[in-house]
């Protein structure tokens, strides 16, 4: 049980500013997800929590206490590394036993705990094998087992299931979510997959170039992104962002409502666009139709700008059709010159 908080943490590697004044708080027992493109500083944050690297500036608190100068072994935090980092010269069982054996736990207790966690992760049958003889998925589960076997304050996972195929990944993330709730432990999870992040996180932080751009629940971030960056990072297909003069009365996107004064662009999620067949006048034309079963993605062209729209189920609209586009003012997002969200004017 532990809360983790970062206060104005910065870290440089040579000339490269890996973390730039990062602050966030992970509540006790929360599933916290760090989400961002590769090399944006996610892994650096985990290493700082673990104590493998020290921040240049700022403070890291675990359970309200500063951990500056506390060795990794003393922090009692378990980690699943991105490349798994199994010990190649030990069998899977020895790998899983290692954290307990190093802490001098009673051998009988070790055996019980290993058996229990092996059962939970379904690796009992492969415990005697060395990592080199395991498949990617099995290695992944052994690495997760090694983290789960002891009773740490918090778990950290650095993109642990990225090597699995899509279906297994979906299963594993549900499983991880279940295990986290069962254990009632804080979990900090790093991923570059927005769907994964949104599906598992209680709270998520979206990162860019060493900065945290926005923190909140997945639904909050999805519904009210504070910048075009966050807006584009979440949701698939991504939000349509257009210059403001495309929307309004008599414009390609029919829209009636107030726009904030500072706004220069409008963002609309593909599922919020309302599409109707129309005469080839002021509307848009359909460039491409992707029927994906539960929904259909349309690519629309309006005066040279391309938009994506998703419709529930199937549609009769075909490539080459002309359509009128409307949007509910409540579902529209506005951004100012700097890309930050513009506040609606009254």
């Amino acid at each position: 049980m532990a809360s983790i908080s970062f206060k104005n943490v910065s870290k440089r590697f040579g000339d490269n500013l890996a973390l730039d004044n990062v602050s966030f708080e992970v509540k006790d027992n929360a599933f916290f997800c760090l989400f961002g493109p590769p090399l944006c500083g996610k892994s650096t944050i985990l290493k700082i929590i673990l104590g493998l690297i020290d921040p240049d500036e700022g403070e890291v608190l675990i359970d309200g206490r500063s951990v500056a100068g506390v060795a990794p072994a003393q922090r009692n935090i378990a980690m699943v590394f991105q490349n798994l980092a199994l010990f190649p010269h030990m069998s899977a069982e020895q790998n899983v036993r290692f954290p307990l054996a190093e802490r001098g736990v009673d051998p009988l207790e070790i055996s019980n705990r290993v058996a229990e966690v092996a059962e939970k992760l379904n690796i009992t049958h492969i415990l005697s094998k060395p990592p080199s003889q395991l498949s990617g998925g099995e290695r992944q589960r052994v690495a997760i087992a090694r983290a789960l076997v002891r009773d740490p304050n918090a778990y950290l996972m650095d993109d642990p299931i990225s090597a699995l195929d899509a279906r297994l990944r979906e299963q594993t993330r549900v499983e991880l979510r279940r295990i986290q709730q069962e254990l009632g432990k804080t979990l900090v999870y790093v991923t570059h997959d927005q769907e994964e992040a949104m599906s598992v996180a209680d709270t998520m932080a979206i990162m860019e170039d060493g900065k945290i751009r926005q923190t909140g629940t997945p639904v909050d971030l999805y519904d009210s992104p504070n910048s075009t960056y966050v807006a584009k990072m979440l949701g698939s297909p991504a939000m349509n962002i257009l210059p403001l003069d495309f929307a309004g009365k008599g414009k390609p996107i029919s829209f009636s409502g107030n726009t904030p004064k500072t706004a220069i662009s409008i963002g609309i999620r593909p599922e919020d666009l309302e599409i109707k067949l129309a005469k080839p006048s002021n509307g848009a034309s359909v460039v491409n139709v992707e029927p994906l079963g539960s929904f259909t993605t349309l690519m629309l062209d309006t005066s040279g700008k391309q938009l994506l729209a998703t419709l529930r189920g199937q549609t009769k609209i075909q490539t080459g059709d002309h359509v009128a586009i409307m949007v509910n003012p409540e579902r529209a997002h506005f951004f100012d010159k700097s890309g930050a969200a513009a506040q609606a004017a009254g």
Partner: peptide, 27 residues
């Protein structure tokens, strides 16, 4: 040698010297 393997041992309760003896040298 990938650092993460040693990092993992550090996190799992080893001192730096013990990591060298138990993980690095055998590997």
């Amino acid at each position: 040698m990938p650092r993460e393997i040693e990092d993992a041992a550090l996190v799992e309760g080893c001192s730096r010297f013990r990591v060298f003896l138990k993980i690095t040298l055998p590997m």
